[in-house]
Design a protein around this nucleic acid. Structure first.
Lengths: 136, 136
DNA sequence: TTCAGTGCAAAAGATTTGCATAAAT
DNA sequence: ATTTATGCAAATCTTTTGCACTGAA
């Protein structure tokens, strides 16, 4: 069973065949799928699964903190199940492909208090943009 | 005349009343408008300007490197004319408001070569997410 | 049994596109 | 005169919503 699924079970998440398939599709450490790609792969195993359910389920996983939404410029959001291991993203401006990077040396410190303007800062997202070998 | 407009003139950008108005709306150092907001403000001065023209113009300004698209999670893109001064963004997860931040001390170094996977990295985007005082 | 989850289809929001017309150089 | 930009309306893509129905606990 996938790690994600095991964790969700442990948290008392109500299980259905649709939810199981979505969680299975999202298993792995370098997965960055769009909602539509998740639906496509889930439907390969469970043909009757609807887009609405995929969106609902993804939204819940995000709310639970088990999946992170990767922001995009114009393109569809991508969902990253590797929420436990902080990391950053290298995104191709051509095809939208996402790669994980872990630049050990230059991790970003917190935003200093005097730069927060009263915001309750919860997360930092760092994205490197450029062209992948295939698109260059 | 706005700085942006002056620069565009200098680059031989073909000028029209629509383009002028869009450039004027985008003038300033802490502007983060959506395409729709740009259209709204532009239309206040030039009622016949169309959304398509606003989108076209914004796309060109981005291609010229004069304006930066601020990525969002789900929401409409925002356009930031402050492309000359590298800075970062504090984004409210509640209302989508964007604030500029310049955390001097912890600027991010480049992504090391061995972490680039053959990508031609062109830019880094750093976004702090959280709730603004109003939404908290 | 009960309540949360699902599917469907329609709606909404953001952005793009095709094409005839208008305007800048 | 020539070339490029504009406006309109329709189309596309992504995501959300309302509601009756199904299935997990």
């Amino acid at each position: 069973m996938s790690d994600l699924l095991r964790r969700l079970r442990g948290r008392g998440w109500r299980m259905t065949s649709q939810r199981r398939v979505v969680a299975e599709v999202l298993d792995g450490d370098h997965v960055h799928l769009t909602a539509d790609e998740v639906h496509l792969r889930a439907a390969a195993r469970l043909p009757e699964i609807s887009r609405a359910t995929v969106y609902n389920t993804l939204g819940e996983l995000v709310a639970l903190g088990e999946v992170v939404e990767v922001s995009t410029v114009g393109r569809a959001k991508r969902y990253d199940p590797n929420a436990r291991n902080p990391h950053q993203h290298l995104v191709c401006s051509g095809c939208g492909t996402v790669r994980d990077v872990h630049p050990g040396g230059n991790a970003l410190g917190d935003l200093p208090e005097e730069e927060r303007f009263g915001f309750a800062v919860g997360s930092v997202e760092i994205t490197y943009r450029g062209l992948c070998p295939g698109c260059a």
